[in-house]
Computed example of a mutant assay.
Amino acid sequence: MTTFPDLTDDELLRYSRHILLPQIDVLGQQRIRNATVLVVGAGGLGSPILLYLAAAGVGELRIADGDRVDETNLQRQIVHSTASVGTAKTESAAATLQRLNPHCRLVEIDQPLDATGLEHWAEGCDLVVIGTDSFASRYDANAVCLRLGIPLVCGAAIGLNGQATSFDFRRDDSPCFACLYPDGEDTELSCSTAGVLGPLVGMVGTVQATEALKLLAGFGEPLVGQLLTVDATDLSWNRFRFARRPDCPVCASRPRTA
């Protein structure tokens, strides 16, 4: 069993409302404090993900995004401010998170990550959370996390609809992203062309942050093999189950539960 350093008095106070939860307790908070997480995307989804993971005390957050803050981002990307317009999103996000929790180590990766970059920055991480609107980046992250045997939390939001799911490659029964979307590809549909409701990305990103903390602390049942969707029009939530595909070109060769 892994032994973690004791929480300091300051940490016991700061994270006391987590520690009071029997599902987390001191050990769960220690696991969160000693975790390293790569968050790909510091935009609409990345904002609540980063804010809640930093507030929860994740030991190291690696923030990857190659964009600059634009005024059109501010309607939904709440980790940034008007004063950040024109600066790197990684720099803007890190400044906000540093003010929120100075105990969190922040690594700024001011570049878009291809498969090679994802492999490099995911090495040594306990978890990857992806909040970009690119199918290609999700496929790349899926393949990298599969090879490294670490969990991946995915989310998406466009217009008035959002979705989230998790893949835990420490479990041999976990499907992969290609099992869920075997024929997915990028289209012209994006927030810049289709629009998106500001609070919707907050709802989905908060689900992703919750999934990340569950996987890190080791409690509850994550959305492995389940796709959670939300329609902001009537605030309806639905859950769809999916399984590993025996013909999946990405994960079919992995061991399978009897």
Rank of each mutant, 00 (worst) to 15 (best):
M1N: 10
F4C: 12
L7S: 04
L12H: 13
Y15H: 08
L20R: 14
I24V: 13
L27E: 15
G28K: 03
N34F: 05
G46T: 10
L51H: 01
L51M: 10
L51R: 02
A55I: 08
A55F: 02
G57I: 00
I63Q: 06
D67W: 05
D67Y: 05
H80I: 03
S84L: 01
V85L: 03
T87M: 11
K89R: 10
K89L: 02
E91Y: 07
S92N: 07
A95D: 12
L97Y: 05
Q98R: 15
N101R: 04
H103F: 03
W121L: 06
A122I: 09
C125V: 07
D126K: 05
D133V: 05
R138Y: 01
A141M: 04
A143R: 15
L160S: 08
Q163T: 09
D173S: 12
S174P: 06
C176A: 07
D183I: 07
E185V: 08
T187Q: 07
S190M: 05
A194V: 15
A194F: 06
L197C: 09
T206W: 02
T210L: 08
P222H: 02
T233E: 09
D234G: 12
L235W: 08
S236W: 07
N238Y: 10
R241K: 14
V250W: 06
R256H: 14
